[in-house]
């Protein structure tokens, strides 16, 4: 039942021997030790588990790890480069766009995907793009501002 699955995880080639039906979320958290990606509902409703697969935000709680085979995965841990935070990470800090911080990795990964498609999103675009990411602490207003600011900065060249 087990097979070798290869993917590129945060820029590193990764090879694992496992059941290809295992859930990507659990593989990332407990086989790869990347616990920044969170479990919130396990059913695709909250977005806490969002990672980038080939640059697209996906809900890792809904994907078998085989879907990631031979693809590029980026998690929250892979966003910073040489200790230099991604503009979205900086903007989330600057605007205090978090309280408990549990939804934050999923929010940031979804926003990265959003800005890659649409570097200059309007408020409405952001709301639409983020709508299915849930935050119980009510950090929404600040998250919107952070995404707008990061978008501007990224357009100006990172």
């Amino acid at each position: 039942m087990e097979e070798t699955i290869r993917f590129e995880l945060n820029g590193k080639r990764t090879e694992l021997l496992l059941d290809p039906n295992q859930t990507l979320l659990w593989v990332l958290r407990y086989k790869c030790g990347l616990t920044g990606t969170k479990y919130g509902c396990g059913m695709g409703f909250c977005g806490a588990c969002t990672v980038l697969l080939e640059g697209e935000p996906v809900r890792s709680c809904m994907l078998p790890v085989s879907d990631a085979a031979n693809k590029k995965i980026i998690t929250i841990e892979g966003l910073a480069r040489n200790g230099d935070l991604h503009p979205l990470q900086k903007a989330f800090m600057e605007y205090d766009a978090l309280q408990c911080g549990y939804c934050t990795p999923g929010m940031i990964m979804t926003a990265v995907g959003l800005l890659m498609k649409n570097p200059e999103p309007s408020q409405q675009d952001i709301i639409k793009g983020m709508e299915d990411n849930l935050c119980r602490c009510g950090s929404h207003v600040r998250i919107i501002k952070a995404i707008q600011t990061a978008g501007k900065e990224m357009k100006g060249g990172r």
Partner: peptide
């Protein structure tokens, strides 16, 4: 004052109870 713990929360380093290795 900005959240003191913000940096480790935006990088995924902040540990929650199911993150203990």
């Amino acid at each position: 004052y900005l959240h003191q713990d913000a940096r480790i929360k935006v990088t995924g380093e902040a540990e929650f109870s199911a993150d203990i290795k």
